[in-house]
């Protein structure tokens, strides 16, 4: 097991390095650089000589390889560099913004999982009765609809209804978890769609397996069959998909933080792209890649706990 963890760790390091290198190359290929973008503004009235000096200060005039070695070296030492736009250390900027996005991601992911589970449970329970089958079919169609709704529209509607019309949650003046509750839940709706689809498909497949009939013949109630047997069996494929959903959360965070005016990584990314702030962009790419890697890793660790057939090593059991 330790050996397995170690190889997985090396694998993760390799993926991070690859992402770092690839993003560096792509950012280099882009015409111009952040220094030019910032200081070429005619209002500043800087001469070409002054701009060239500035570029030398930031190291932007050196060859790509020298820059790469330099940037990789300082990143390995934990120094993410300085933002050209604000002049602040990137680490400091991330530190200020990551909690909001992390909370947003957690709320929307957990919300999406809960929504998907509710959808799935209703679809299974209702399909038992003749009338309920039509309702179950209707529920089965929901993910297809919600995945098609644009996030920003959903969020504007959410603000209109929840904050202005019903006056349940104020839009401004919130901090911490309460600030991400409404945006997180709004984001959860489209995020839940792929989860619900996979969950329902897996649950319907489990439902047709012979052991479900055996349980019914044993006098076990439909509700218990659902929560103790169908859902646990349908969960592993759903979790596999949830790793992919993380990308959608990141993309959704950019829009959501803009709509709700939240100071998160999404906002930061959007500004950094606008101003070609290379150091900030690279740091954000590194963070999202590590997010992907750790979620994939976590789901690989969790899978054998949910499905004993995937177990890598014979585990010690109590009995």
């Amino acid at each position: 097991m330790i050996r397995y963890l170690f190889t997985r760790f090396l694998h993760a390091i390799f993926v991070l390095w690859g992402a770092f290198t690839l993003s560096f190359v792509l950012l280099q290929v882009m015409p111009g650089d952040a220094v030019l973008v910032k200081f070429q503004d005619p209002e500043l009235g800087l001469s070409p000589q002054q701009i060239a000096d500035m570029r030398a200060t930031y190291g932007a005039d050196e060859s790509a390889i020298t820059q790469y070695v330099h940037v990789l070296g300082r990143t390995l030492h934990g120094n993410l560099g300085y933002s050209i736009e604000t002049g602040l250390p990137v680490g400091q900027m991330l530190h200020a913004t990551y909690p909001t996005t992390l909370r947003l991601a957690i709320v929307s992911f957990v919300g999406a999982l809960v929504l998907a589970t509710i959808c799935c449970a209703l679809a299974i329970l209702l399909s038992g009765s003749p009338v309920g089958r039509y309702l179950a079919a209707a529920i089965g169609a929901i993910p297809g609809i919600t995945s098609g709704i644009p996030v920003f529209w959903l969020e504007i509607v959410a603000i209109q209804l929840v904050s202005f019309h019903w006056k349940l949650i104020p839009v401004v003046g919130l901090s911490g978890w309460s600030a991400v509750l409404l945006p997180g839940l709004a984001l959860a709706i489209p995020i839940s769609a792929p989860l619900a689809q996979v969950f329902m498909a897996a649950a319907h497949r489990v439902e047709t397996l012979p052991f479900i009939d055996v349980l019914r013949a044993r006098g076990v109630s439909p509700l218990r069959i659902l929560y103790a047997h169908i859902l646990p069996n349908a969960l592993p494929p759903t979790l596999t998909v949830s790793g992919l959903v993380f990308g959608e959360i990141l993309a959704g965070a950019v829009v959501t933080e803009t709509v709700f005016g939240l100071d998160g990584l999404g906002q930061l990314a959007q500004q950094a792209v606008a101003s070609q702030d290379v150091a900030v962009l690279q740091a954000i790419i590194l963070i999202s890649v590590s997010g992907f890697v750790s979620i994939g890793f976590a789901s690989e660790i969790i899978q054998p706990l949910l499905d004993p057939r995937i177990g890598r090593s014979a585990r010690q059991r109590k009995y």
């Binding site: 397996l209 012979p210 052991f211 055996v214 013949a217 044993r218 006098g219 047997h229 069996n233 057939r309």
Partner: peptide
């Protein structure tokens, strides 16, 4: 079910919940 009448199923490979 279970108390008065019970079932012994056909296919033992798929008649037990694999994750319990």
């Amino acid at each position: 079910r279970g108390k008065k009448v019970a079932l012994i199923p056909q296919d033992p490979a798929h008649s037990l919940d694999p994750v319990r």
